[in-house]
Amino acid sequence: MPVFHTKTIESILEPVAQQVSRLVIIHEEGEAGHEMPDLERPVFAVSKAVTNLVKVGREMSTSTDDLILKQDMPQALNKVDEAARLLVEAAKLSKIDPLSKPARMKLIEGSRWILQGTSNVLLVFDESEVRKIVQDCKKTLDYLSVAEVVENMEDLVQFVRDLSPILSRVTVEVCKRTEDLTHQIHREVLNRCVEQVKTLAPILICSMKIFIQILSQDGKGVEEAAENRNYLCGRMSEELNEIIRVLQLTTYDEDEWD
């Protein structure tokens, strides 16, 4: 099973994770007593990258309406910041003594923290992006709940006008998300749900139209028409709720599938 639950996060962290584990192996193999190269330039590049990431992250947590992001992002950024400080200290120490053991320890620790910190930053950000899609799914559920009170063509037209843009946004966003997921089962479930929602939407509208037509004529069979409409509405809501559930799963939720 993949460790990272999106391809984006995987492509960012996997190469550095490999490097960090190799560094740890070298260290565990006894350091070989080699001298450390001059690390001033590469450490400066890392520090600069940390400064830029922290800047973007702080701006994001300041401007967002997402309270969880606002709360979690600064902590994640602090970890990256601390990691950069460790690396700067390590570079200074190793410049004075290229065989310095504390310098080597700080380098390993700093690199690990960069990896963990960047991972946390990306996860906090990713969860926030998922919450945006979930919010749209919930909005769609709210619109669907109105279906049962639509009793004339004018209201049906308005209903379609309200539902269509949000439904189309949800399907596009979920499809985009699905493509980015590394977890095969999550991908399959989301794809299936989106297809179901797309299929059911026009059938639901059609059932609402039939209900309205019967209601405006002799009313014969109106109960069955309402039942059919409610069934379709319920099916669409089930699919949307399943989308919400699976969107919030990560690869760490494997037990769910056992």
């Binding site: 450390m36 973007v56 690199s111 960047t118 990306l122």
Partner: peptide, 29 residues
């Protein structure tokens, strides 16, 4: 914005990997 966050995280990860490569380069030489 969101894509900028991903871009900056990628730059940081790359520069960290390059730093470690520099250290490893000496160790493995």
């Amino acid at each position: 914005d969101s894509s900028e966050m991903v871009r900056q995280a990628r730059i940081l990860a790359q520069s960290t990997a390059e730093l470690i490569q520099a250290i490893r380069g000496e160790a493995e030489a």
